[in-house]
Design a protein around this nucleic acid. Structure first.
Lengths: 132, 132
DNA sequence: ATTCGTGCAAAGTTTTTGCAGTCAC
DNA sequence: GTGACTGCAAAAACTTTGCACGAAT
């Protein structure tokens, strides 16, 4: 077990994720943190994002297109992917734990948890579609 | 709109996916189809998998680790990812459409659908864990 | 002093794409 | 004959990793 040491870079990454709801990709995090640490490398960003995700201080969201995205909100919650603009939006909705039990009835084994990604159209994009 | 033409390679890929429940990666499909078409290229496999997925004749499953996986069962259904062995297993459970409506109440926009991936331990791996 | 973290660059993995030839219609 | 599909190879996109130096304890 390696002891964890403080690093400003890691702290900056954590702060950025805590301050935004944009669910940035690793590259977006890199571009942002680079404003504070112009010499930070993408490798360091990836290392820290994975480290934070492993410690549960950050959530890694796997999406169908493009790379993984990161979320500073660690309380379990669902996301919506807008199929028009590709944005990922937090859903302020309680996790439906009951479907784990429902699933376990249909599965030869045990179920611990689940992730759900909703597909929809955000308000911005609904507006645009109407105005066409 | 390009007219679709028959191709044996595409047919073989489709047949393979219809015949297995193993949710192979693109590479695994490639390795299998290569037995019938030794000169098929990985590029062709990817092109056809994407084509079939776009037409809805095959489902692309995005998973946290490794590449995407493909499923010949087009009827909407959930999957379980065994966190021990990494296998993806079909869940014979009805889609809970009601959570789309639930989600829409919490979202400023419209929700069309959702995908859910359950995390669990399959029977095989439960056995192994017990015997340790 | 020791151990972990960083920057850099190289390499790894997965997926897409350009092109010339081939096959289906 | 035309347009789609193929194999091949190169490239793109994303992520990880080895190494020597610097920072934290």
């Amino acid at each position: 077990m390696a002891a964890l040491k403080y690093s400003r870079q890691r702290e900056s990454i954590k702060e950025y994720l805590a301050s935004t709801t944009s669910h940035p990709t690793a590259d977006a995090v890199y571009l942002h943190v680079r404003e504070e640490f112009p010499h930070i490398s993408l490798g360091t960003v990836y290392r820290n994002l994975n480290l934070l995700a492993d410690m549960g201080e950050v959530i890694k969201i796997t999406t169908p297109h493009g790379g993984d995205r990161f979320d500073g909100v660690t309380k379990p919650h669902y996301h919506v992917l807008c199929t028009e603009c590709g944005e990922i939006i937090d859903l302020n909705m309680d996790i439906v734990h009951s479907i784990n039990e429902q699933a376990e009835k249909c599965f030869d084994g045990s179920i611990h948890s689940h992730t759900t990604l909703f597909y929809g159209t955000c308000r911005e994009c609904l507006k645009k579609k109407k105005s066409i």
